[in-house]
Simulated scan of single mutants.
Amino acid sequence: MRSKLFVPGVRPELFAKALAGDADALSFDLEDSVPEARKGEARESVSALLQSAPLLATAKIVVVRVNALDTPHLAADLAAVARTGVDLINLPKVESAQDVLAAVALLEKAEATNGVAQPVGLLANIETPRGLRLAAEIASAHPRVAGLQLGLADLFQPLGIDRRDPANVHATLYAMRMAAAEAAVFAWDAAFADIGDADGFRAEAGMARRLGYVGKSCIHPSQVALANQAFQPDAEEIAAARRIVAAAREAGAAGRGAFLVDGRMVDLPFLKRAEAILASADANTSAS
């Protein structure tokens, strides 16, 4: 899930191109990219796509960002897009466990109506001060919550927080990552609005990866390759991980819990990280 590309629900001419592109995940958007007067149109376009053969055949992770609980659109959105083939519903501006439970109730009703057998997961957006403070509670609210996604624009802009200050970004990324870790769900990084600033995107994506995020949102196809590169383990990391896993097998056979690899003492936390790196590399190879 290195890259997740937002696709406006009112731009059906972009759907086929997105499905054929290199993003690991696609997020068909009914929220911010859709004007109020066109919400119904976007809902119908995305619903039709979700029931189409190309979508049902894709190996990509399929996400739909619906409108928030405090809008008049959420129930209709879920009724239209809670479909077989959708992996995650992205719920914006979640601020409490109660928000999650309310959304799950609506989602369950929509799934029952549409005959969905495999429950759809929730990706909860953390993009308000209260949401960030209660992020661990939100992530733990229901088994359907698969991950948290950061929304830095909505969080920072109203408060006058400088997005270009790496300290501000790091502090917020860290806080949400710890909340996700407490609930044992994944953390997905925010979008980066300056499409022309590839270096800025790389820097922010690199920071997120070093904090244990699984991938970054993209608002333009040109950002997809940058995200894929940033979250792809390099050859040196993969080789080091393989050495740790191999050494762990030998240590286990000898009854040792800690051992040396490349001059460094290694125990269970390092082994888990090495196994995660290899799993990520294998998954990314399969997706390519």
Rank of each mutant, 00 (worst) to 15 (best):
A57H: 02
V66F: 07
S52C: 04
E44V: 09
L50G: 02
V46Q: 00
L55P: 01
A23K: 01
V64M: 06
K60A: 14
S47F: 03
P54T: 01
V62P: 00
E44K: 07
D22W: 12
A76F: 08
E36W: 09
A75D: 15
D22C: 08
S27E: 02
V62S: 00
S45I: 02
A23R: 01
L56A: 14
P72N: 14
V63S: 06
L55F: 07
L49W: 11
S27I: 15
L49S: 05
V34L: 04
S27A: 13
G85S: 15
L78Y: 10
P54M: 00
D24W: 03
A59G: 15
K60G: 04
S47T: 03
N67D: 13
A48P: 10
A68E: 03
L19F: 10
V46H: 03
D29Q: 11
L49E: 13
K60P: 00
L49K: 05
L50Y: 05
L49A: 08
V62M: 09
L56E: 09
S52M: 00
A18C: 09
A75V: 14
A82I: 04
L26M: 04
N67R: 12
F28W: 08
A75F: 06
L74V: 06
L78W: 05
A68S: 15
S52F: 08
R83I: 08
P54I: 00
A82Q: 05
A25K: 01
G21Q: 11
G40L: 03
N67C: 13
E36K: 10
V81W: 11
V62C: 00
V46D: 01
